[in-house]
């Protein structure tokens, strides 16, 4: 699905990603954990193509294509989805109109005609039910006046609508109460399939109780320093990150 090799990226001349490697196969869920400032959100931004970051070295192959060569919109059209940590508000643009535009663009890229209105509306209805999003939210302006939880749910709703092959969840659990967390995770679980992969970035093990990952990676200082299964997340929860930092520094 995606193969990231020796990825180096910096912002304002400061290197954040320092030789990051990761292989994600179709259908797998990878969790990335790590202390603040380890580069987790930078990884998400670089993969999505945010231009503030400069990629200085490395290679990323996504669905057999050179990801780093593609514009952000083409990455999205190829099936890469980022659930934002801080979803932005777009006043006056309804969620429905926003998604219709996005889906039409993606379909056009794939040489498909726009969805018929009734098929589109049916899709909206089905996916709304899937992520337990109220009908009224879909008709409101994109994220405008949404609570923190509603914004995150809206991200999952968009993900369900766009049906990406790779979804990156950037701290989607931050700021969620336990009910919202359950709903968001429930949405993700319903979207898990053998041809869809996830990279779940989180600070807390809590989310991984609901979204059970195939692999857990610990990121520190711009690299993955430890890889394990879901038990590693539990270990981190009880022991914190300090032991990993020490291990890493000793290794150097």
């Amino acid at each position: 699905m995606i193969s990231i090799k020796n990825l180096h990226a910096s912002i304002d001349g400061k290197e954040i990603l320092k030789g990051f490697n990761l292989e994600v196969n179709a259908g797998e869920v990878h969790a990335i954990m790590g202390p603040n400032g380890s580069g987790k959100s930078t990884l998400a931004s670089v993969l999505a193509g945010r231009e503030d970051y400069e990629v200085t070295d490395g290679k990323v192959v996504f669905n057999n294509k050179d990801l780093l060569e593609m514009s952000p919109e083409d990455r999205a059209r190829e099936g890469l989805f980022l659930a934002f940590q801080y979803p932005v508000e777009i006043p006056g643009v309804s969620n429905i109109n926003f998604l219709k535009t996005a889906i039409t663009e993606i379909r056009q890229y794939k040489g498909l005609p726009p969805l018929e209105a009734k098929d589109f509306l049916k899709l909206v209805k089905d996916k709304q039910a899937m992520v337990e999003l109220q009908g009224s939210l879909a008709n409101r302006s994109v994220n405008e006046g949404f609570s923190g939880g509603e914004k995150k749910r809206n991200e999952i709703f968009q993900m369900a609508m766009l049906e990406p092959s790779l979804a990156i969840l950037d701290e989607t659990d931050s700021g969620l109460d336990i009910d919202a967390l359950r709903i968001v995770a429930g949405g993700v679980n319903k979207l898990r399939s053998s041809n869809r992969s996830f990279i779940v970035i989180t600070h807390y093990q809590r989310l991984l109780d609901y979204i059970v990952p195939d692999f857990v990676h610990v990121m520190y200082n711009g690299q993955i320093v430890k890889t394990g299964t879901k038990e590693l997340a539990l270990e981190l929860e009880s022991k914190g990150y300090d032991w990993i930092k020490k291990e890493t520094e000793q290794a150097i």
Binding site: S71, P72, L82, P87, V93, N97, L99, A102, E105, Q158
Partner: peptide
Amino acid sequence: IGEDQLFYCKQRGIDTEKAIALIVNGYCKE
């Protein structure tokens, strides 16, 4: 017009021109 807004649209597959039209039309909707 926020770069964040533009990036958000692009991440959903909408190119810059269309994103601006979308954002501006939303702004003028009333």
